[in-house]
């Protein structure tokens, strides 16, 4: 049923087809690419009280749970567990906080009393009490979280430090 080729017609169809594809692609692209710039989850933007500074033993890491609000797209969760952090009070009384996420692939590190160091259960990365990398695949030491002491309370700002 083909008629003789007509270049003008072909061109019209191709232009129209390309236009239609672009038009149809626009909303799909808008939907697919929206996350590139949008902040869809907000959490722990404030400092969170994790306990009294006197309750922490010196030179002995303490695992604390961070509870704060979490905005997830259209839902706001109030005061939910966001994750945990390790608090270390030095012998001089200074307080530091470390993310419990291993800088290797994000598993949660434990403090192993026996060897007096942090260890990651996933790939055996090990970190000193002060967060410095000792051995294993981690690219760096434990990530420090913003932390300060106010009126005897330890305040930590949570961050989900991705590897």
């Amino acid at each position: 049923m083909s008629t003789a080729p007509d270049p003008k017609r072909r061109k019209l169809l191709i232009v129209f087809g390309a236009g239609a594809a672009a038009l149809a692609g626009a909303p799909v692209g808008a939907g697919l690419l929206a996350p590139v710039r949008a902040t869809t989850v907000r959490e722990g933007e404030e400092f969170v009280d994790v306990g009294g500074v006197d309750e922490i033993l010196e030179d002995h890491p303490l695992r604390v749970t961070i509870r704060a609000d979490r905005e997830d797209a259209w839902t706001t969760f109030r005061n939910v567990e966001l994750g945990s952090a390790w608090i270390l009070k030095g012998k001089d009384g200074s307080v530091r906080a470390f993310s419990s996420a291993c800088p290797h692939l994000g598993c949660s590190v434990d403090f192993v009393e026996k060897r007096d160091c942090f260890e990651c259960p996933c790939h055996d990365a090990a970190f000193a009490k002060g967060g410095e990398k000792i051995s294993g695949p981690a690219p760096r030491g434990l990530d420090q979280l913003p932390c300060r002491v106010e009126a005897g309370r330890v305040l930590v700002r949570f961050a989900r430090v991705a590897s």
Binding site: L23, A24, A26, V28, G31, L32
Partner: peptide, 9 residues
Amino acid sequence: ATGVAMSLH
């Protein structure tokens, strides 16, 4: 097209 865009959200 618009349905796909919305189904993503």
